[in-house]
Amino acid sequence: MTIPNGQYGGAPGYGTQYTQQFPEVLASTALQAKMPGGVLLASGNGVLAKGTVLGKVTATGKYVPYKSTNTDGSQTAVCILDNDQDTTNGDVGASAWIAGIFTSSALTGYDANAGTQLKLCYFV
């Protein structure tokens, strides 16, 4: 929607309005806990979305997207990323949930195995 210039006494209007969506992965904010000290996301995984299930690579101690078929340690779900992070150009420190009530359909990489491994998380 654009407002004509004349409506603001000759000054430019606010122009076109855009909306942003902030996907919410928490089903409730009543119970939640984050990983103490945060996590170090390994570089080279591109942009990781809020709600990505993370696993920890045993050899490096860095976190990558969880996948049950991996064999490097990241086949075990450890936590859930709480904000979008770009790992394209290097390792990134981030915060992640280890407990909470989550909307499983809003998570990236969630499967039944992750649901079992994330023992302090409840999924709806």
Score class of each variant (00 low, 15 high):
Asn70His: 14
Thr71Asp: 12
Ala96Trp: 03
Asp72Asn: 13
Ala99Met: 04
Asp84Trp: 06
Leu81Thr: 13
Leu120Ala: 10
Leu118Lys: 01
Leu107Cys: 04
Gly93Tyr: 14
Asp72Ser: 06
Lys62Leu: 13
Tyr8Asp: 12
Lys119Gly: 15
Gln7Lys: 07
Ala112Ile: 11
Thr88His: 05
Thr58Arg: 00
Val64Gly: 03
Gly115Ala: 03
Ser43Asp: 09
Val39His: 05
Met35Phe: 07
Gln21Thr: 15
Ser43Arg: 00
Ile98His: 05
Pro36Asn: 14
Ala59Met: 06
Lys119Phe: 15
Lys119His: 11
Ile98Gly: 04
Gly90Val: 09
Ser105Leu: 05
Thr52Glu: 12
Val64Asn: 02
Thr108Val: 13
Gly44Met: 06
Asp91Val: 05
Thr16Val: 12
Gly100Ala: 03
Gly51Ala: 03
Ala42Ser: 07
Gly61Asn: 10
Gln7Arg: 07
Tyr122Val: 15
Ala106Glu: 11
Met1Lys: 05
Ala27Glu: 07
Leu107Thr: 02
Ala112Cys: 09
Thr71Val: 14
Ala112Asn: 07
Cys79Gln: 01
Val39Trp: 04
Ser95Gly: 14
Tyr18Val: 12
Pro23Leu: 09
Gln17Ala: 08
Thr60His: 08
Gln117Arg: 06
Phe102Arg: 03
Gly37Ser: 09
Gly100Ser: 04
Gln7Ile: 14
Pro65Tyr: 00
Gln17Ser: 06
Asp72Glu: 05
Thr108Cys: 08
Met35Trp: 05
Ile3Val: 11
Ser105Ala: 05
Lys50Trp: 07
Asn83Thr: 15
Ala94Val: 08
Gly10Tyr: 01
Tyr110Val: 03
Tyr66Phe: 04
Ser74Tyr: 07
Met1Thr: 00
Glu24Gly: 10
Tyr110Trp: 09
Leu31His: 11
Val78Cys: 06
